Amino acid sequence: MRAVIKAVAGPGCSFVHDRPEPDLLPGQVRLAVAATSVCGTDASIHAHGPAARALGLRLPITMGHEVAGTVIEVGPHTAGPALGTRVGVETHLACGRCWACREGSGHNCADLALLGVDVDGAFAERVVVPAASCFEVPEEMSLETAALLEPAGSAMHAVQRCGVPMGGASVLVSGAGPVGLVLVEIALALGARSVVVVEPNAARRRLATARGALALDLDSDPVGEADRRTRERRGFDVAFECSGVLPALEALLDRVRNEGTVMVVGLAGGDLPVPVTRTFITRGLTVRGSWGRAIWSTWEQLSALVGAGHVDLDGLVTHRLPLSDLPAALALMRGDAGKVLLLPSLADSQEPGRTADAGADLQGVPA
């Protein structure tokens, strides 16, 4: 089958026409891929950047993880979606056996596998996934939209985990990529008093403004530009770091009020020295990470917000390309593009072969 594979530990990938189909085991289903979207993690895998190396890629592997499709084959002894069911896929593949899984926290699985990192992924005509990882797509939702539930779910889960009621809250978002933009819409839909976005790219700032945020460049003072209550409190109630840039995370620690919360959402390489006494004791800050999505509460709440028109996932998509055009997709993401979809139904624009020019790792470009 046609697929994009990462075969060696170095920059680049290969587009092939003869990738063998994965075996279908008990508990699994095979999907015909309708749409798959490209994110910053894919860029780092393509460039073999720090974030990708930290994930411990199992090579060779079919890349891609944000996907929706239709069940075309069901494995033996498998309970789950029937043939013909349209599904999105939870790409953090939980074992179902460990303590976290038994307690209903599969996203914290002790033996977690990642689609497109540990097992063959979705930049292909077909993909095999656990039946238990499939989310049935509502009738009124397109499969292109459903392919965005996974990345948008990262924003939803961050809001769920932050511990700050959104009603009446002042919110700061660093990075207006797709995850940051969805976070803006979720926060406002749940009653946030104000949302301020810091983003260096002018086109992305316009997208944030269109979604109801006050969008500022890096030279602005978010607290000084915020509403009166935020200025009086000398900081925001909660801040979400979505860009994966360490200096941005460091800045957020100074932009939340005393006893405020900073959520780390974007994947960043490297370490950040933190003044422990000032950050955690005298200022009493809470710093939390958000990993993946809660299964299935994140999907259900996000799907409801999308269905009610509060979150516009379709508006994130700026380009649709064939599977063969992953390098072009990554180049677009380094510019002003929003979400780029790879659609197996589109005719390939190039012959099979290796793409050695990986371009820059997109660490620091909002996912």
Rank of each mutant, 00 (worst) to 15 (best):
residue 71 V to W: 06
residue 123 F to A: 08
residue 160 Q to T: 06
residue 346 L to S: 00
residue 242 C to I: 08
residue 256 V to T: 07
residue 36 T to S: 14
residue 235 G to L: 03
residue 146 A to E: 06
residue 134 C to N: 00
residue 282 T to G: 05
residue 277 T to I: 14
residue 311 V to R: 01
residue 17 H to S: 13
residue 221 D to C: 12
residue 205 R to M: 10
residue 126 R to F: 08
residue 263 M to D: 00
residue 91 T to E: 07
residue 319 H to S: 07
residue 219 D to P: 03
residue 1 M to C: 06
residue 26 P to F: 04
residue 119 V to G: 12
residue 329 A to I: 03
residue 187 A to E: 07
residue 50 P to W: 13
residue 165 P to W: 00
residue 185 E to D: 06
residue 97 R to Q: 12
residue 242 C to D: 03
residue 164 V to N: 04
residue 311 V to N: 02
residue 166 M to P: 15
residue 331 A to M: 03
residue 262 V to R: 12
residue 245 V to W: 10
residue 83 L to W: 02
residue 364 G to Y: 09
residue 327 P to W: 07
residue 66 E to M: 14
residue 260 G to Y: 14
residue 304 A to I: 06
residue 139 E to T: 13
residue 237 D to M: 03
residue 78 T to V: 06
residue 260 G to C: 06
residue 45 I to H: 07
residue 296 W to P: 11
residue 151 P to D: 00
residue 3 A to W: 15
residue 97 R to I: 13
residue 122 A to G: 10
residue 60 P to A: 10
residue 85 T to G: 02
residue 206 R to S: 09
residue 94 A to E: 07
residue 61 I to A: 00
residue 185 E to A: 06
residue 70 T to Q: 02
residue 52 A to K: 03
residue 314 D to R: 07
residue 280 F to I: 13
residue 285 L to P: 01
residue 3 A to D: 11
residue 320 R to F: 01
residue 163 G to M: 00
residue 278 R to I: 06
residue 81 P to E: 06
residue 88 G to T: 04
residue 301 Q to N: 15
residue 58 R to C: 09
residue 365 V to M: 09
residue 191 G to A: 04
residue 274 V to T: 13
residue 51 A to C: 13
residue 263 M to K: 04
residue 255 R to Q: 13
residue 9 A to T: 10
residue 89 V to A: 04
residue 61 I to C: 03
residue 7 A to R: 15
residue 42 D to C: 11
residue 54 A to N: 08
residue 12 G to K: 04
residue 255 R to C: 15
residue 320 R to E: 02
residue 214 L to H: 05
residue 108 N to S: 06
residue 142 S to I: 02
residue 3 A to M: 12
residue 199 E to G: 12
residue 18 D to A: 12
residue 178 P to I: 08
residue 53 R to L: 11
residue 220 S to H: 13
residue 64 G to C: 08
residue 258 N to I: 06
residue 274 V to Q: 08
residue 334 R to P: 11
residue 367 A to E: 14
residue 338 G to L: 05
residue 79 A to Q: 13
residue 163 G to L: 00
residue 45 I to R: 11
residue 80 G to R: 01
residue 253 L to F: 11
residue 121 G to T: 03
residue 209 T to R: 15
residue 115 L to F: 02
residue 123 F to N: 07
residue 294 A to I: 05
residue 109 C to N: 01
